[in-house]
Protein backbone atom coordinates (compact mmCIF):
# COMPACT_ATOMS: atom_id res chain seq x y z
CA UNK A 1 0.00 0.00 0.00
CA UNK A 2 1.14 3.54 -0.83
CA UNK A 3 2.89 5.52 1.91
CA UNK A 4 1.30 8.85 2.75
CA UNK A 5 4.04 9.89 5.19
CA UNK A 6 7.70 8.93 4.90
CA UNK A 7 10.08 10.11 7.57
CA UNK A 8 13.80 9.39 7.30
CA UNK A 9 16.51 10.23 9.82
CA UNK A 10 14.53 13.18 11.12
CA UNK A 11 16.31 15.34 13.65
CA UNK A 12 15.28 18.54 15.42
CA UNK A 13 17.61 20.37 17.77
CA UNK A 14 16.71 23.49 19.77
CA UNK A 15 19.96 25.07 20.91
CA UNK A 16 21.63 22.32 22.89
CA UNK A 17 18.47 20.28 23.37
CA UNK A 18 17.63 17.46 20.98
CA UNK A 19 13.86 17.16 20.48
CA UNK A 20 14.00 14.46 17.79
CA UNK A 21 16.88 12.15 16.95
CA UNK A 22 17.07 9.75 14.02
CA UNK A 23 13.30 9.29 13.74
CA UNK A 24 12.22 6.95 10.95
CA UNK A 25 8.71 5.74 10.12
CA UNK A 26 6.15 5.44 7.34
CA UNK A 27 2.39 5.84 7.47
CA UNK A 28 0.33 3.97 4.89
CA UNK A 29 -2.71 5.35 3.13
CA UNK A 30 -5.88 4.73 5.15
CA UNK A 31 -3.98 3.83 8.28
CA UNK A 32 -4.49 5.22 11.77
CA UNK A 33 -1.01 5.69 13.11
CA UNK A 34 -0.50 6.39 16.80
CA UNK A 35 2.48 8.37 18.03
CA UNK A 36 2.65 7.65 21.73
CA UNK A 37 4.80 9.22 24.33
CA UNK A 38 4.79 11.34 27.48
CA UNK A 39 4.84 15.15 27.42
CA UNK A 40 8.09 16.45 25.99
CA UNK A 41 8.88 13.28 24.06
CA UNK A 42 8.75 15.03 20.67
CA UNK A 43 5.19 14.21 19.50
CA UNK A 44 4.12 17.81 18.87
CA UNK A 45 7.47 18.67 17.28
CA UNK A 46 6.90 15.82 14.80
CA UNK A 47 3.38 17.08 13.97
CA UNK A 48 4.71 20.63 13.51
CA UNK A 49 7.35 19.40 11.07
CA UNK A 50 4.83 17.29 9.16
CA UNK A 51 2.42 20.22 8.88
CA UNK A 52 5.05 22.72 7.72
CA UNK A 53 5.13 24.75 10.95
CA UNK A 54 8.68 23.81 11.81
CA UNK A 55 11.80 22.99 9.82
CA UNK A 56 13.78 19.92 10.79
CA UNK A 57 17.45 20.36 11.66
CA UNK A 58 18.26 17.43 9.36
CA UNK A 59 16.58 14.46 7.76
CA UNK A 60 13.61 14.23 5.47
CA UNK A 61 9.85 14.26 6.04
CA UNK A 62 7.73 13.66 2.95
CA UNK A 63 3.95 13.82 2.98
CA UNK A 64 1.95 12.99 -0.17
CA UNK A 65 5.28 13.23 -1.97
CA UNK A 66 5.79 16.86 -0.81
CA UNK A 67 9.25 17.36 0.66
CA UNK A 68 9.96 19.37 3.84
CA UNK A 69 10.21 22.65 1.99
CA UNK A 70 6.82 22.19 0.25
CA UNK A 71 4.78 21.46 3.37
CA UNK A 72 3.43 25.01 3.49
CA UNK A 73 2.00 24.92 -0.03
CA UNK A 74 -1.69 25.62 -0.56
CA UNK A 75 -2.24 22.31 -2.38
CA UNK A 76 -0.83 20.41 0.61
CA UNK A 77 -2.86 22.37 3.16
CA UNK A 78 -6.06 21.70 1.25
CA UNK A 79 -5.47 17.96 1.81
CA UNK A 80 -4.68 18.00 5.53
CA UNK A 81 -6.57 18.75 8.72
CA UNK A 82 -4.69 19.77 11.86
CA UNK A 83 -5.92 19.78 15.43
CA UNK A 84 -3.30 20.74 18.00
CA UNK A 85 -3.38 22.15 21.50
CA UNK A 86 -2.68 25.63 20.11
CA UNK A 87 -5.69 25.69 17.77
CA UNK A 88 -8.06 28.56 18.58
CA UNK A 89 -11.58 29.78 17.83
CA UNK A 90 -13.13 33.25 17.54
CA UNK A 91 -14.64 33.82 20.97
CA UNK A 92 -17.14 36.54 20.00
CA UNK A 93 -18.61 34.49 17.14
CA UNK A 94 -21.00 31.56 17.19
CA UNK A 95 -19.99 27.98 16.43
CA UNK A 96 -21.75 28.32 13.07
CA UNK A 97 -19.90 31.55 12.16
CA UNK A 98 -16.56 30.00 13.11
CA UNK A 99 -17.23 27.00 10.87
CA UNK A 100 -18.66 29.14 8.08
CA UNK A 101 -15.35 31.01 7.82
CA UNK A 102 -13.50 27.75 7.32
CA UNK A 103 -16.06 26.51 4.78
CA UNK A 104 -15.19 29.60 2.71
CA UNK A 105 -11.44 29.24 3.25
CA UNK A 106 -11.55 25.63 2.04
CA UNK A 107 -14.24 26.29 -0.60
CA UNK A 108 -16.60 23.80 1.05
CA UNK A 109 -20.43 24.17 0.88
CA UNK A 110 -21.99 25.37 4.15
CA UNK A 111 -24.20 22.28 4.24
CA UNK A 112 -21.12 20.46 5.48
CA UNK A 113 -21.42 22.34 8.81
CA UNK A 114 -24.49 20.28 9.74
CA UNK A 115 -22.68 17.03 8.99
CA UNK A 116 -19.61 17.77 11.09
CA UNK A 117 -21.67 19.15 13.97
CA UNK A 118 -23.65 15.92 13.98
CA UNK A 119 -20.40 13.97 14.12
CA UNK A 120 -19.28 15.83 17.26
CA UNK A 121 -22.77 15.94 18.76
CA UNK A 122 -23.20 19.72 18.69
CA UNK A 123 -26.06 20.12 16.22
CA UNK A 124 -28.30 21.91 18.73
CA UNK A 125 -25.56 24.27 19.88
CA UNK A 126 -24.57 25.84 16.57
CA UNK A 127 -25.87 29.30 17.46
CA UNK A 128 -24.05 29.35 20.78
CA UNK A 129 -21.20 31.85 21.21
CA UNK A 130 -17.84 30.16 21.44
CA UNK A 131 -17.04 32.18 24.59
CA UNK A 132 -19.89 30.34 26.34
CA UNK A 133 -18.61 26.84 25.58
CA UNK A 134 -16.99 24.40 27.99
CA UNK A 135 -13.48 23.09 27.31
CA UNK A 136 -14.86 19.80 26.04
CA UNK A 137 -17.26 21.57 23.67
CA UNK A 138 -14.45 23.79 22.38
CA UNK A 139 -12.41 20.71 21.60
CA UNK A 140 -15.37 19.21 19.70
CA UNK A 141 -15.84 22.42 17.66
CA UNK A 142 -12.14 22.40 16.80
CA UNK A 143 -12.42 18.80 15.70
CA UNK A 144 -15.49 19.65 13.61
CA UNK A 145 -13.53 22.49 11.97
CA UNK A 146 -10.67 20.10 11.21
CA UNK A 147 -13.06 17.69 9.48
CA UNK A 148 -15.00 20.28 7.44
CA UNK A 149 -13.07 19.81 4.20
CA UNK A 150 -12.87 16.01 4.52
CA UNK A 151 -9.06 15.97 4.56
CA UNK A 152 -7.12 13.01 3.17
CA UNK A 153 -4.81 13.17 6.17
CA UNK A 154 -5.69 14.20 9.70
CA UNK A 155 -3.13 15.26 12.28
CA UNK A 156 -4.68 15.00 15.71
CA UNK A 157 -2.68 16.05 18.75
CA UNK A 158 -4.40 14.64 21.87
CA UNK A 159 -7.88 15.03 20.32
CA UNK A 160 -9.91 13.76 23.26
CA UNK A 161 -7.77 15.06 26.11
CA UNK A 162 -10.47 17.44 27.38
CA UNK A 163 -13.47 15.21 26.73
CA UNK A 164 -15.58 13.03 29.01
CA UNK A 165 -15.82 9.28 28.21
CA UNK A 166 -19.18 9.58 26.40
CA UNK A 167 -17.93 12.32 24.07
CA UNK A 168 -14.59 10.57 23.60
CA UNK A 169 -16.46 7.45 22.52
CA UNK A 170 -18.49 9.42 20.03
CA UNK A 171 -15.37 11.07 18.61
CA UNK A 172 -13.68 7.68 18.36
CA UNK A 173 -16.65 6.29 16.41
CA UNK A 174 -16.53 9.30 14.09
CA UNK A 175 -12.80 8.89 13.54
CA UNK A 176 -13.25 5.20 12.80
CA UNK A 177 -15.91 6.03 10.21
CA UNK A 178 -13.61 8.59 8.57
CA UNK A 179 -10.82 6.05 8.59
CA UNK A 180 -13.08 3.44 6.97
CA UNK A 181 -13.77 5.99 4.23
CA UNK A 182 -10.04 6.21 3.50
CA UNK A 183 -8.84 9.11 5.67
CA UNK A 184 -5.36 8.56 7.03
CA UNK A 185 -5.01 9.58 10.68
CA UNK A 186 -1.82 10.57 12.46
CA UNK A 187 -2.69 10.61 16.12
CA UNK A 188 -0.59 11.59 19.10
CA UNK A 189 -1.85 10.62 22.50
CA UNK A 190 -0.76 9.42 25.89
CA UNK A 191 -4.13 7.71 26.36
CA UNK A 192 -3.30 4.04 25.85
CA UNK A 193 -6.90 2.89 25.60
CA UNK A 194 -7.48 5.46 22.85
CA UNK A 195 -4.43 4.15 21.00
CA UNK A 196 -5.59 0.54 21.38
CA UNK A 197 -9.09 1.43 20.20
CA UNK A 198 -8.12 3.48 17.17
CA UNK A 199 -4.63 2.69 15.94
CA UNK A 200 -3.58 0.18 13.33
CA UNK A 201 0.05 0.72 14.33
CA UNK A 202 1.71 2.61 17.14
CA UNK A 203 5.17 4.07 17.67
CA UNK A 204 6.54 4.64 21.17
CA UNK A 205 8.43 7.89 21.33
CA UNK A 206 10.75 8.56 24.23
CA UNK A 207 13.24 11.43 24.52
CA UNK A 208 12.93 12.13 20.80
CA UNK A 209 13.59 8.55 19.68
CA UNK A 210 11.26 5.82 18.48
CA UNK A 211 11.69 2.90 20.84
CA UNK A 212 9.12 0.52 19.33
CA UNK A 213 6.88 0.46 16.31
CA UNK A 214 4.29 -2.22 15.55
CA UNK A 215 0.61 -3.16 15.63
CA UNK A 216 -0.82 -3.00 19.16
CA UNK A 217 -1.82 -6.69 19.10
CA UNK A 218 1.67 -7.74 17.99
CA UNK A 219 3.23 -5.69 20.77
CA UNK A 220 0.91 -7.18 23.37
CA UNK A 221 1.72 -10.70 22.13
CA UNK A 222 5.43 -10.02 21.97
CA UNK A 223 5.54 -8.67 25.52
CA UNK A 224 3.06 -11.17 26.97
CA UNK A 225 4.40 -13.62 29.55
CA UNK A 226 1.96 -16.24 28.12
CA UNK A 227 0.28 -16.86 31.47
CA UNK A 228 -3.44 -17.25 32.13
CA UNK A 229 -5.39 -16.01 35.16
CA UNK A 230 -8.35 -17.99 36.42
CA UNK A 231 -10.87 -16.33 38.70
CA UNK A 232 -12.58 -18.96 40.79
CA UNK A 233 -15.96 -19.01 42.51
CA UNK A 234 -14.32 -19.16 45.93
CA UNK A 235 -12.68 -15.76 45.22
CA UNK A 236 -9.19 -17.04 44.46
CA UNK A 237 -7.20 -15.96 41.41
CA UNK A 238 -4.76 -18.48 39.97
CA UNK A 239 -2.03 -17.58 37.49
CA UNK A 240 -1.14 -20.49 35.24
CA UNK A 241 1.54 -20.96 32.61
CA UNK A 242 0.42 -21.19 28.99
CA UNK A 243 0.71 -24.39 26.98
CA UNK A 244 -0.31 -27.97 27.88
CA UNK A 245 0.73 -27.66 31.52
CA UNK A 246 -1.71 -24.84 32.15
CA UNK A 247 -4.37 -26.36 29.92
CA UNK A 248 -4.69 -29.44 32.14
CA UNK A 249 -5.29 -27.29 35.22
CA UNK A 250 -7.79 -25.09 33.37
CA UNK A 251 -9.66 -28.22 32.24
CA UNK A 252 -9.70 -29.50 35.78
CA UNK A 253 -11.29 -26.32 37.18
CA UNK A 254 -13.68 -26.00 34.27
CA UNK A 255 -14.89 -29.57 34.57
CA UNK A 256 -15.68 -29.06 38.27
CA UNK A 257 -17.55 -25.83 37.48
CA UNK A 258 -15.36 -23.62 39.66
CA UNK A 259 -14.39 -20.95 37.09
CA UNK A 260 -15.85 -17.43 37.00
CA UNK A 261 -13.51 -16.02 34.32
CA UNK A 262 -10.38 -16.81 32.33
CA UNK A 263 -7.98 -14.07 31.12
CA UNK A 264 -4.84 -14.27 29.07
CA UNK A 265 -2.27 -11.99 30.72
CA UNK A 266 -1.35 -9.68 27.88
CA UNK A 267 0.22 -6.40 28.93
CA UNK A 268 -1.41 -3.09 28.04
CA UNK A 269 0.41 -0.67 25.78
CA UNK A 270 1.03 1.41 28.90
CA UNK A 271 2.72 -1.57 30.60
CA UNK A 272 4.90 -2.14 27.55
CA UNK A 273 5.86 1.54 27.44
CA UNK A 274 6.96 1.41 31.09
CA UNK A 275 8.91 -1.80 30.35
CA UNK A 276 10.74 -0.23 27.45
CA UNK A 277 11.39 3.28 28.75
CA UNK A 278 11.18 2.91 32.49
CA UNK A 279 8.64 5.72 32.81
CA UNK A 280 4.88 6.23 32.77
CA UNK A 281 3.02 7.68 29.80
CA UNK A 282 1.86 10.88 31.49
Amino acid sequence: MENVIEVNKLEKVYGTQTALADVNFQVKKGETFGFLGPSGSGKTTTIKILTGQLRPTSGDAQVFGHSNSALNHQSYRQRIGVLTDNSGLYQRLSIYDNLKLYCDLYHVPVQRIGEVLQLVNLTDEKKKLVSKLSKGMLQRVLLARTLLHEPDLLFLDEPTSALDPANSKQIHEGLRRLNENGTTVFLTTHDMSEAETLCDRVAFLHKGKIKLLDEPKNLRRKYSDSTITLELKDGREIVLPGGSEGADVVYQYLSTNQVVSIHSNEPTLGDIFVDITGRELV
Binding site: T51, Q53, S75, N86, G88, L89, Y90, L105, Y106
Partner: peptide, 14 residues
Amino acid sequence: EKNTLRGLMLSPAT
Protein backbone atom coordinates in the same frame (compact mmCIF):
# COMPACT_ATOMS: atom_id res chain seq x y z
CA GLU B 1 -3.18 35.88 21.32
CA LYS B 2 -6.17 33.58 20.76
CA ASN B 3 -4.23 31.17 18.51
CA THR B 4 -6.59 31.80 15.60
CA LEU B 5 -3.90 33.18 13.27
CA ARG B 6 -2.31 29.73 13.26
CA GLY B 7 -5.60 28.27 11.98
CA LEU B 8 -5.64 30.76 9.11
CA MET B 9 -1.98 30.05 8.34
CA LEU B 10 -2.65 26.30 8.23
CA SER B 11 -5.60 26.77 5.88
CA PRO B 12 -5.14 26.97 2.10
CA ALA B 13 -5.48 30.78 2.26
CA THR B 14 -2.33 32.54 1.05
